[in-house]
Every structure is written in C-alpha cells, then in structure tokens.
Design a protein around this nucleic acid. Sequence first.
DNA 1: GTTGAGCGTT
Length: 306
Amino acid sequence: MSIEYVPVSEGEQEEPIELPTEEDGSLLLSTVAAQFAGASGLKYRAGGRLRGLRLVDERLSPPAEGWAAHRYWCAFPRSSPSPTPRPRCSDLIVLGLPWKTGEDAVREYFAAFGDLLMVQVKRDAKTGLSKGFGFIKFAEYEAQLRALGRRHMIDGRWCDVRIPNGKDGGASAHRKVFVGRCTENLTAEDLREYFAAFGQVTDVFVPRPFRAFSFVTFLDPEVAQSLCGQDHIIKGVSVNISTASPKRERGGGGARGSQLLGWGLVEAGGGAARVFNWAGDAWPQQPPHSAATPHPALDKPYLKYE
DNA sequence: GTTGAGCGTT
C-alpha cells in the first residue's frame, strides 16, 4: 500500500490539513497530534451519523471504504472537571499601614483590585490602636496577583502586600534569592524592573544603609531557583544570585544587636542618625513606621528626620 | 563591605 494523504481538521468546521498515512495504510496518532496537540482520536460523518476511527497501538485504521471517502476531524479528551486547578487565594499581609487607617479604608483601597473576602487591621487588644498592619483575602487569584505585583499608597503611606510567613508552608524561602555584589546605585526599582522579565516579583528588599546585597522574591519558586548560581549584569553592575538562607541560620555576631530597630532604637542615641540616613529612591525603603509618624500613643521622644 | 523589619488573641 502506498502513502496517501488524509484530510484532517481540528473540528468539523475548520479547514483540513492533509496528513500522510504509513506504509501499512494506517494513520499514526502522533502524526495527528503533531498538527493538533492533545488530539486523542479521529471521527467522521457517515450518512447522518458520527463515527469514530479504530485506534490500536497509536495507529488509526481507515474506514472500510478507505480514507478518501471522508474527511475527518479530531477527538479530544473530555476536559477534566478541573483542567488546570487554579492557584487559590491566600491571606495576604498588608504592612506599613498608617496608624489612622482602619478596615474601611483598607477595603475601599483594595476593592479596586478585586472582590475581597476578608479585611483585618490588627490592633492592640488593650488600647485598640492599630499595629500598622493587617490582612486581606481576595476572591480571585488574579486580584491577588495584581495586588502582589506592586506597592500601595494608602492614606499617604507606601504599604507592602506579601504572602504571610508561616502560610504557604514557609515556601517563601524558595521564592527568594540573594543578590550579591550590588552597588549603591542599584535601586529596588531597578531590581524589580530587571527581574520582572523572569517572573512576577512580589518583593524587593534593599537594606539601608547600603550593604552591597539585596533580596528579590518571586511569585514562582521555580523562577527563583532557576536564577541561583547565575551572574547578571544590571545597569552595568555584575551581581551574583544565590539562594536566600534563612535569617537566623548564619553565624557571626557583629552588628546583630541592632536587629530590633523601631521604637527601641530611637532612644539608643548614637547610631540612630546613621540608621535613618536613607535617600529618597523611587522604591523607597520607607522610614521605620514609628520614626516617621510616631504612634499617637507614644509619649516618648523620637528621632526626627528631614 | 555577599543574608532581610514589622506577621494574625480565634
């Protein structure tokens, strides 16, 4: 038997593509799938009825009357009830809320990103004063993606939306990379813009004062992992990317005493001036909440900056 | 000058 060409289309209405048979007169399913990805068989119309082609060992057999008597189109697997289980929304933490901002304002702000299932502003149990952070949950994952993809100006302050620690099985470690050999002119915005080409960036951390490294967190852990070990040139600077090791798992003591900035540091005096010596970048590492806008309950002196 | 701020009374 010689090779002949069989007209096959994706659906009954579409334009056919002619596919070659094998020497034995069969048509390989792989030949069909090469043109129609995911096809699982072929069917045709015989009289008024639909008929399916016999398929054995990946070979489609012609109908008794031969290939030329019909034209054929593809059968596809019945789409499973949940073809691609969409990622589910998680609670999101909103950091850096102004003290005055309550649930209503948070809800009103984030409603622009999508329907909200939950809004919380965390408050001190005794005083009822805001702790400066809260939690939200969207109904749609797309809304969550939109909110994670940028920073947020709420009641006059830049706020960050992140996937909370502890949820997500602590997977944030796998979503984050350490960017070494940074120079001082590499801003958080530069990094976000550069790394966005590899996948959605959910967080950029650039220590202040300058420390020659940064952290970039991606939505997809595979993106983060794929970058590890590489050198990249950003704005002419060759940076090195490696895994972000958990905060505490690194030895050495040194300047570790100043971990708890914030209220306590204010009264520490000496080093404070340097600590608050940030520059106004586009992706500002905002001044510590308490120093920039003292909590109304704070009656202690705090360090002002200009 | 290569490892980070802050994380939920249920």
